[in-house]
């Protein structure tokens, strides 16, 4: 098959203008917007556009990427003012009568072009103790028993790829660098609602802090930004309810 689904469908390429916020820490004081014209097909991804620029026009354009199909979480960026993964955003889904604006995600220190320092993001993640805490081992030396229904209630939050699209779309996170942010809460949810975990109380206490879930103002930016379709705001609401109830609502076992 042709390299490209557009070619297969008989669609032709057209010129798209990308305006990218560039920043080189070694030579610049402030970022500048720079535009590039690229020949693209409707089914190309924004990541393809960035690669075309890097490989054919300006090798210094800097961004992270790896899997290129929305599973590794490397290439979250702000595209036309919305947080998205560049590899999951197709040109045909953007308004191409206008230039496409691309910049780094907000709220994390800018390192170079589209690359930010992810360490503060991962620091929040580590704080919620993102690992199963369970002393009781199954007596038969096999797996812990978990019913299909128990597995189902935290299914959504296991999809998180830690891309930071949600956290860096949150207005509270932008203005308050101390706030855990939606991704950390999503990952806390994943364990709080896991029937095998024994430390829900510890995590709920951590999130009951002044920089915890109560800072969330339910703007739904995070849910809209999530490239995995996780109902982030709902997960945060479920954590809030669990704090108020003193424990998570988990279905009975098998």
């Amino acid at each position: 098959m042709a390299d490209n689904p557009s070619v297969e469908a008989g669609l032709s390429a057209f010129t798209v203008t990308l305006i990218i916020r560039r920043f080189d820490p070694e030579t610049m004081d402030e970022p500048v917007w720079k535009d590039y014209d690229v020949e693209l097909y409707p089914t190309d991804r924004v990541l393809d556009a960035l690669h075309k620029i890097k490989w054919e026009q300006d090798g210094s354009l800097t961004f992270r990427r790896s899997c290129a199909h929305g599973i590794c979480g490397s290439d979250a960026m702000r595209i036309n003012g919305r947080n998205r993964l560049a590899c999951k955003t197709l040109i045909k889904d953007l308004d191409i009568t206008q230039p496409i604006y691309v910049e780094a995600i907000k709220g994390l220190p800018l390192e170079k072009d589209l690359v930010v320092d992810m360490e503060p993001f991962f620091a929040s993640y580590r704080e919620i103790q993102p690992f199963l805490i369970a002393d009781a081992k199954p007596k038969d030396g096999k797996e812990r028993i978990q019913s299909v229904a128990q597995r189902e209630i935290f299914d959504d939050t296991t999809k998180c790829i830690l891309c930071a699209a949600c956290t860096s779309s949150c207005p509270v996170f932008w203005t308050d660098g101390q706030y855990f942010g939606p991704a950390a809460i999503v990952n806390a949810h994943r364990f709080i609602f896991d029937s095998r975990d024994e430390a829900a109380k510890v995590r709920l206490d951590i999130l009951n802090d002044k920089e915890g879930v109560w800072r969330c103002r339910t703007t739904f930016n995070c849910t809209e930004a999530c490239p995995r379709g996780i109902q982030v705001t709902q997960a945060i609401a479920e954590v809030k309810n669990a704090i108020l109830a003193g424990k998570p609502a988990i279905p009975a076992g098998v």
Partner: peptide, 15 residues
């Protein structure tokens, strides 16, 4: 599984 991996489950709650 013991480390926390959320495998899909059978009706009996096994992996």
């Amino acid at each position: 599984e013991n480390m926390g991996l959320p495998f899909n489950r059978t009706p009996e709650g096994r992996i």
